[in-house]
Design a protein around this nucleic acid. Structure first.
Lengths: 221, 221, 221, 221
DNA sequence: AATGAATGAGGTTTCATTCAT
DNA sequence: CATGAATGAAACCTCATTCAT
């Protein structure tokens, strides 16, 4: 009659692994470290996951699920094309910086995933991609953006994902503001609101990985 | 044939390491594999480099040097603010996709570098960053761009670096065209020329890692 | 339904373990596999047996018991020295190939048994050995066999046990025929009957482990 | 210019592994034990062999090679059908008890070998089998044996291989005498010589695995 | 300069066994 | 009786690094 505690343990293992994978990378994280973070022996991991890689897969599936969830909610509430695009930006950045670590792992550890499990993750990814296509089509129809929409989408996602390299959550720039400001870079019509906001707050010192990126200077073991 | 062949060996080791690091990542690449790619025994690597990490440092220093070189030449030849910005875009993409693999490693393996050697790489990086700042300042003065220039720069570099995830050199889209098209995304004044070019060639099907990215589906050992 | 079901469970566990031990060997068989074969969880095994080795002991005791039983019955019914020897051959081969798997495990996994439990098995074994001695003595007195009877017995048992390596139950050669044919190898007086039988049926293609043995080519996980 | 010591090291590893595999079985022997027996670290094993199983394969290939060699020499020197059969018996028993341990491992650890490498070993085995067929055909032509020659061969090999279970080299029975005595069991014409020899020496106390086998009582860790 | 055998620390994984429920 | 999660020791194996030649 022992109520299986399995789902809870699984979830904790996934969360701990995600945090470590995000910070140190999949290869540099040992099974023992993940176990210690959760307070179990390393052997226990393999009761829940067949291998370390299966744990990575679980992290990524969870991350993808949250990406989709983080977009779906705000998207439903938004009613103008601009609002909908803004919802995607905010959802994406919130997923990356405001919640768990699984989503960041999706972006960063793609290469560590073998071909087979990768295909499982791709299914979920296609859902998210479809939302972007749809919202960008609407935005183009409304005259908000123009040009090659695929390339635009890739540029947007590149700029958004690249924030992993430099954005610091405890800095002076909030996630919502970051979303608005990045949106303004790509959509002229969104620029005015952002400009007004910027006048009100002190300019943050931003740096970047190819330049004076700050986060990378710390996360060393 | 008179002097020791050392510098040549070094260069070949760096190039081989860069290719493997780019494709499989630093941690997943073994010293043996690098040695085999050059045709020596694994022990020989350590005659030229104190450790595997020193080899990574050498790769990154070389990569940074080439980033700077790839920007400096075209920049000197360009004479309008728009041309200068275009030179940076083209130089960056050429460095990533048109030459060796060292530059891509700089972008991708940043996290594997310990704090100490990272500082050595940062010096070179600041040079490149300075060019970007300068050129963007000029562009703003010329009315080509507006808004938060730091954020704009970060968005641009994000979009450019993200091409590592999806751009395929042997696809239908040339590097120069890619540079123009991406520039058009950020600089309205550059959009017209790109639009004209696009009419002339078939639209390529692009996808991305968070979406239907293609490259990741292959590079598995 | 009144008494604890223990004995039944025990028996099923022993049978399942015997089948797996026979096929894969004691060391290569995991407690989980035995449990799954019976439809319980691995932890349940240890309610019935103190350890995996105790389960092996139980299998072997059961196997030895059946060896003795397989010989005793036919022996009692046989009334000539030749018939009695034939009863031993048939009983032995029936035990190995015609019934459960416990007997085969006795032969094959002897080395995995620790000294202490081995002694418990030896008691039963001596019973069987005594029958062989007795029957062979009678056969010698009747002029059926001659020479060193101990060596003869060892050769006979070697030939019989070695059938584990090559005999296939679903092949063209029946157990009774095999018994007769092997007996004929050792006892000239038994050869005539076998020769007659052989004329009636097609000759099977037999091979052996040191040669073209077939069974070993399959039983791989 | 360092002369590669490889073949020597390899040979010592194979010999040490064979001795341990013979005594404790493949699964119960750890890589560390093998390494210790040779005086190296456990990691060194894997410089010479890709895996523990590859080491088993090497042991078995070596064992098979020696089986063939142990038969070929005496066979060439023998000139009558009886002598040739005797050469096979003596060669086989010498291989099992008089030399290295590789041959015994071939017989005992067959099941631990995966299907793929097993096929490599089978090639060598077929050579040995062919010799047996040929010699038995000659013996039948000469009237030394009769009946189903395949079954006879299997019975002979069974009796010979079974000696692994009970024969003790340092006992009163020499290998050559054992060969003669076992031959006499199967070939009446060979019985006289054996009978004469037996009169001269004290009768040894033999036991067997299914009975009072002695060797198994010791080899416990 | 290079080799190639060896090291040895440490990684992932296995698995018999335990135990609270 | 049985569960199923957890243990923890120990297994196999990897690999950057060393060093005598």
């Amino acid at each position: 009659m022992a109520r299986p505690e399995d789902p809870e343990r699984r979830r904790r293992l996934i969360a701990a692994a995600a945090a470590l994978f995000r910070r140190y990378g999949y290869e540099r994280t040992t099974a023992r470290e993940i176990a210690r973070a959760v307070g179990v022996q390393s052997g226990s991991i393999f009761y829940h996951f067949a291998s370390k890689e299966e744990l990575l897969v679980a992290v990524m599936l969870e991350g993808m699920r949250q990406f989709a969830a983080a977009a779906r909610g705000p998207l439903a509430a938004a009613d103008s094309p601009l609002e909908r695009l803004r919802a995607l930006f905010l959802g994406h950045l919130t997923a990356l910086h405001g919640g768990g670590d699984e989503q960041a792992v999706v972006i960063q550890e793609w290469r560590s995933l073998a071909a087979r499990p990768r295909r499982r993750v791709v299914g979920l990814r296609d859902e998210v991609e479809a939302m972007w296509r749809e919202v960008l089509d609407e935005a183009a129809a409304a005259g908000l953006v123009s040009g090659d929409l695929r390339l635009l989408r890739l540029a947007m996602l590149g700029a958004l994902n690249w924030t992993l390299q430099w954005y610091q959550r405890d800095g002076p720039l909030g996630i919502a503001e970051l979303a608005d400001d990045l949106l303004a870079v790509f959509v002229p019509a969104a620029a005015r609101a952002a400009k007004r906001r910027r006048a009100r707050r002190p300019t943050a010192t931003l740096t970047l990985p190819l330049a004076s990126e700050a986060k990378g200077m710390h996360a060393q073991r």
